[in-house]
Write a protein that binds this DNA or RNA. Structure first.
Lengths: 148, 148
DNA sequence: GTACCTGCAAAACCTTTGCAGCATC
DNA sequence: GATGCTGCAAAGGTTTTGCAGGTAC
């Protein structure tokens, strides 16, 4: 797992490489995304310390659209009404385990079983997974009825 | 794979069990869902032969909400702006393979690799998968650049 | 007859766009 | 100084709700 500082540095560097202007709003947004270990939605971003009151909603959106277009963030669905975003740093997991009851999102670490699954899908379906994304919905430990 | 008739019979039976009133609109909706092998959205449902002109959008929505609440249909995210729904018949796959380029949805048949993945997640994360759902995003054969 | 369902209409909500002014390069 | 970014405001599209009337049980 990369540090927030590493993630921030990576995203800033990407923006420069893509010739995006480094404005105050963008720095604040990238800082927040770097520190967010789970996908966040616009409302969370708008309320965040360091962003609140400094950035219009339209700007937030347009910024996220640009960042997504350049591959710096990913849009994650998560069965939510609102769009969620997460930094698209390389060499980090981008797969999610979502509780169908409470909506908690957990990381889905890369495992051998996942590789095997993708390989099997590639063989049978012809799909490729360069920029794959997996969302698995189940029931988290906290939401499982206490059986005994 | 169950026949459409089987799927329809199951859904009708579920509605009866849940004491939902069997109105004309609901029968038409269930028929359409039974015949749909891919998740469908409200717009598709509203345009479908057998539904078009006979059912208000608000009714469609409220019906889907009821059906979802009773576990008769599932809401599927599919990274689409619009909500998609699919019949939640037992003993059928409810996993999807989505193309990140064209949005095509393919079935993800149950494989041993998927079982292995879930087992591994259960062990390491404590998630259970009674009503699991998996969405995997990759690139379908048609959208892969022709390499040679 | 009662409880639930439906259509119509309008509201609520998230997302998108236009435009004039401003900041970055 | 030119280009791209921002805020404000308003439009667009999907989802949600209220209410009066109708339908299944």
């Amino acid at each position: 797992m990369k540090s927030s500082a590493d993630r921030l540095a990576w995203s800033l560097q990407q923006c420069i490489a893509k010739k995006m202007r480094m404005t105050g709003a963008r720095k604040r947004i990238l800082r927040f995304l770097s520190e967010s270990r789970q996908p966040v939605n616009l409302e969370q971003m708008g309320r965040a310390r360091g962003i609140k009151g400094t950035c219009d909603n339209a700007t937030l959106w347009r910024t996220m659209m640009s960042l997504e277009e350049f591959g710096i963030v990913r849009r994650v669905s998560l069965k939510s009404k609102m769009a969620h975003f997460a930094l698209a740093t390389p060499d980090e997991h981008h797969d999610y385990l979502v509780c169908q009851d409470c909506g908690t999102v957990a990381d889905l670490p890369h495992t051998h079983a996942l590789d095997a699954l993708q390989e099997e899908i590639s063989k049978t379906k012809g799909f490729t997974f360069e920029k794959h994304e997996v969302e698995i919905y189940g029931t988290c430990p906290d939401c499982q009825p206490a059986k005994r």
